[in-house]
Amino acid sequence: MTTRPVGLTRDLPAGRVMHAQADGKDMVVWRATDGTIAAWDNRCPHRGMALSHGFVRGNRLACLYHGWHYDRSGRCGLIPAHPDLEPPATIHATQYGVVETGGVIWVSADEAPAPDDSDLAPLRSFIVEASEDALRDAQEATSADGAPPAPEASDRVSVLCNPIEPGRTQVTVLTAPGLPLPRLRTLSRWCEAMRRQAEAKETA
């Protein structure tokens, strides 16, 4: 199994929770108040509620359904219905690997190695309703025409794909660091053009 890009560091501030998918697994990715990040199976062991709907209290993730709290190791530390009970150590969320490099959040279901650090800066993370192949074709086609909003060599655009379902791909776009605001806006619109093209091809 490989390490997959599931979002941007800037999009997951401290105390926040998001849903991610990689290699057929549903995951919750969350950041504790102290800034540490964790990725778990997106299922509360109690009654199966998606933990990605949960909330962060301090350095624990709580499930929205009955408020069970899990610490960073995934262990359940509080069952609000029985506040005086010490939850058995057997109650814990399943953990996955997660690392952050170059402003990108990467997850893996096993202990796959972290990707190399790069000097590129994250632009956007979004989902395309098309296969990775269709997206790559669209990247080429929309880059080649040379007219705005197509990228230029100096933008050093790099496109990372995370295939999440057949015909559905999460895309992370990186660029040269420190680009001026108008350039970021333009390249963001190029992302939209690439997506339109990929999806048009997919349905054609």
Partner: peptide
């Protein structure tokens, strides 16, 4: 709409009940 598995598991090992 966000419980998994979607069907109700009858195997007592699949989910963890408490006294409540």
């Amino acid at each position: 709409e966000n419980q998994r598995p979607v069907k109700l598991p009858l195997d007592p090992k699949m989910e963890i009940p408490t006294r409540a």
